[in-house]
C-alpha cells in the first residue's frame, strides 16, 4: 500500500475558533509535519511567534510545519503539497466560513495521494443557536454541522454548563452521528483532530485538553475479518472518536484500520504487524468493556 497523506477538513462559521484550533495543533505538533491550507492569507491565521519565514506562497512554521493559502483552487494547492519532499504527515484544510466542509472533503477524496481523515466542524458555544436562526445563515450553519464527523463546541467557558448540554442536544438533532467535544482555546488532543500517528500504537494524547479523554490499546486480537471489526467498532456506539490499528485477516494478511467517529477505512498493509488497535474517546463516553467484547467476538 502506498502511503496516503491524511487530510483533515476544519469547518465552521466565522468566529467559531478555527484559527485558535489551528494554532493549538501547530504549537503541539511535536515532530509531526503538518501542512495547513487556508482559504486565503486573510488576517493571518498563524500566531506570529510560530512563524519562521514567509513569502507570498508559503509560511514556514517552527517544527517543520507549513501554511499555504489556496484562494479559490484547493485541488491545485493539494497537488502542490503532494509534490513536496518530504511530504507533510498531515494536511489540515481550513474551510472558509461559508464553505460546506463535506464538499471540501469529497474533493480531497478524489486525489490519489490523499485520504480524508475526518471532517471537524467547530460550533461557537455562545453563538451557534443564534446563527442557526439567522435568516441568511441558518441553512449554511445546519449543513455545515450535518457534514461533520466530529463537532467541537468551542468557547464553552463563556456559557453555563447547562447551556453547553442544551447545545449538544440541539446539535444532535441535526447530526446524531458526530461526537461533540467541548473545548476552550482549541485545546483538543492532536490525535483527536488529526488521527492517531502512523508510527505509534501506544496510548498517547498530546496537547492540553479541557475535556478528559481516554486512549486505550487493545491487543490480543485474533485473526478475523478486518472490515467487519472496523465497522462494528465505528458504528457500535462505543464512544470511539478515533481509532487506528492493525488486524490480521483470516488469510494472514495484515490490514490497517482507521476510524473517525462512525467512518472507517480498511486497507491491506504492506508488511506484517502485531495486531493491536488504539481507541480514543471522551473518558465519560468511551466504553472499553464493550469494545473489548466486540474485539473478543470478532471472527
Amino acid at each position: 500500500m502506498s502511503w496516503k497523506i491524511p487530510v483533515i477538513v476544519i469547518g465552521g462559521y466565522l468566529g467559531a475558533g478555527k484559527t485558535t484550533l489551528l494554532n493549538h495543533l501547530l504549537r503541539h505538533a511535536d515532530g509531526r509535519r503538518i501542512a495547513i491550507l487556508v482559504n486565503e492569507f486573510g488576517d493571518l491565521p498563524i500566531d506570529s511567534d510560530l512563524i519562521e519565514a514567509e513569502d507570498d506562497e508559503i509560511i514556514a512554521i517552527a517544527g517543520g510545519c507549513i501554511c499555504c493559502s489556496f484562494g479559490s483552487d484547493m485541488t491545485a494547492a493539494l497537488m502542490r503539497l503532494a509534490g513536496l519532499s518530504p511530504k507533510p504527515d498531515y494536511v489540515v484544510i481550513e474551510a472558509s466560513g461559508v464553505a460546506m466542509p463535506g464538499t471540501v472533503g469529497a474533493s480531497v477524496a478524489l486525489l490519489d495521494e490523499f485520504i480524508l481523515s475526518g471532517i471537524v466542524v467547530l460550533a461557537d458555544a455562545e453563538r451557534i443557536t443564534i446563527q442557526a436562526n439567522d435568516e441568511y445563515l441558518a441553512d449554511t450553519i445546519l449543513r455545515q454541522l450535518s457534514d461533520a464527523d466530529l463537532i467541537v463546541q468551542t468557547k464553552i467557558d463563556l456559557i453555563q454548563p447547562q447551556a453547553a448540554k442544551d447545545n449538544c442536544q440541539w446539535i444532535a438533532t441535526h447530526n446524531s452521528r458526530a461526537p461533540i467535544i467541548p473545548t476552550t482555546q482549541g485545546k483538543v488532543p492532536l490525535e483527536v483532530i488529526l488521527g492517531i500517528q502512523r508510527t505509534t500504537l501506544e496510548p498517547q494524547l498530546s496537547g492540553h485538553s479541557d475535556a478528559e479523554f481516554t486512549s486505550k490499546v487493545f491487543s490480543n486480537i485474533s485473526a478475523c475479518d478486518p472490515h467487519t471489526l472496523a465497522k462494528n467498532i465505528a458504528i457500535g456506539g462505543f464512544g470511539v472518536i478515533r481509532a487506528k490499528g492493525f488486524v490480521e485477516s483470516l488469510t494472514g494478511q495484515t490490514y490497517l484500520i482507521q476510524i473517525v467517529a462512525d467512518r472507517y477505512d480498511v486497507k491491506e498493509f504492506e508488511r506484517a504487524e502485531p495486531p493491536a488497535i488504539v481507541c480514543i474517546g471522551l473518558s465519560n463516553k468511551l466504553d472499553i468493556k464493550k469494545i473489548s467484547y466486540e474485539i473478543a467476538r470478532a471472527i
Partner: peptide, 23 residues
C-alpha cells in the same frame, strides 16, 4: 444562487454563499 422564500421551483435546496456576510 441564494433565493428568498419560497426558494427553487423544483425544490432544490438553497444555494451557496461565496462570501460570509461579515466579510
Amino acid at each position: 444562487a441564494r433565493l428568498r422564500w419560497p426558494g427553487y421551483h423544483n425544490g432544490a435546496p438553497n444555494g451557496l454563499w461565496y462570501i460570509a456576510p461579515e466579510q
